[in-house]
């Protein structure tokens, strides 16, 4: 827990601050006054069942869906109602649920799409991404639909890295992947965090996610039910019963 202590010391200003955010789809309230904070160099996980509002929260932060009320601040600047492409340019990116890889395009084209606003540094970023994901270098001219599920998830993460983000949001990375691949993906997220990236993760696979995250929030039907350090959540009887199958 020494790591957590150093993080507490660094906690001066959050990188991302979501303040009482409410989002609705017509009559349905998807999020109700949700507040979360993410500090630099943290891995924060959102835990919750299907339909709890995890994807809505991540896409609202990115600017896909305008909130009905509340604020989102990124590095002190208000970013709700800012278009998605501007937020990407400012350093937020989302690895969407189900990867969102462009299946008919080559691996290299997919990576370059991530660098749409950052083509000046594309060679440097490509070299780094290929170093972290050698398999993508091997497959760079292949069409993305020929990749396996795990490789697609790696491609989606690598594509996000091409935009030189400060905050990487990853939506349900473990969905539809074999357990051994899920471990690889979480190892990658921890490695990226050590490289200096800040990670906001949404997961149904609560145990594995909490094992690699510093802190977590539990979302239940659009509200934050519980929050705290990973060790606290892992030992919480309610969390154990609902999400850890204990």
């Amino acid at each position: 827990m020494e790591l957590n202590r150093t993080l507490v010391d660094e906690k001066k200003t959050p990188m991302l601050r979501v303040e009482e955010l409410s989002v609705s789809y017509g009559q349905i309230h998807a999020l109700e006054k949700v507040s979360i904070e993410v500090y630099p160099h943290e891995i924060v996980v959102l835990i919750g069942a299907n339909g709890a509002g995890k994807t809505t929260l991540l896409s609202s932060i990115l600017g896909v869906k305008a909130p009905t009320s509340g604020n989102v601040f990124f590095e002190g600047k208000k970013i709700d109602r800012v278009p998605v492409d501007r937020n990407v340019r400012e350093g937020i990116c989302l690895v969407p649920e189900g990867r969102g890889v462009f299946a008919s395009m080559s691996v290299l084209d997919n990576l370059l799409l991530g660098a749409h606003h950052n083509l000046v540094n594309k060679d440097k970023n490509l070299a780094r991404v290929y170093e972290w994901f050698p398999i993508l270098k091997k497959r760079k001219d292949q069409v993305a639909k020929t990749l396996s599920g795990g490789e697609r998830q790696m491609l989606a993460i690598a594509r996000a890295l091409m935009s030189a983000p400060k905050l990487i949001m990853v939506d349900e990375p473990s969905i539809g992947l074999a357990p051994i691949i899920v471990n690889d993906i979480f190892d990658i997220l921890v490695m990226l965090n050590k490289e200096g990236y800040t990670v906001l993760l949404s997961e149904q696979n609560a145990f594995k996610a909490l094992k690699c995250a510093h802190r977590g929030y539990v979302l239940e039907t659009g509200t934050i039910a519980l929050s705290g350090t990973s060790s606290l959540l892992l030992n919480d009887p309610g969390v154990k019963a609902a999400y850890l199958g204990a």
Binding site: S59, L62, V64, P83, V84, D85, N87, V88, R89, C93, L94, P96, G100, F102, A103, S104, M105, L113, G114, H116, H117, R159, A160, S163
Partner: peptide, 13 residues
Amino acid sequence: AEDPAGARLVGIP
């Protein structure tokens, strides 16, 4: 052309 919503998510205006 392949996926407008996905293109928006990666930051294509």
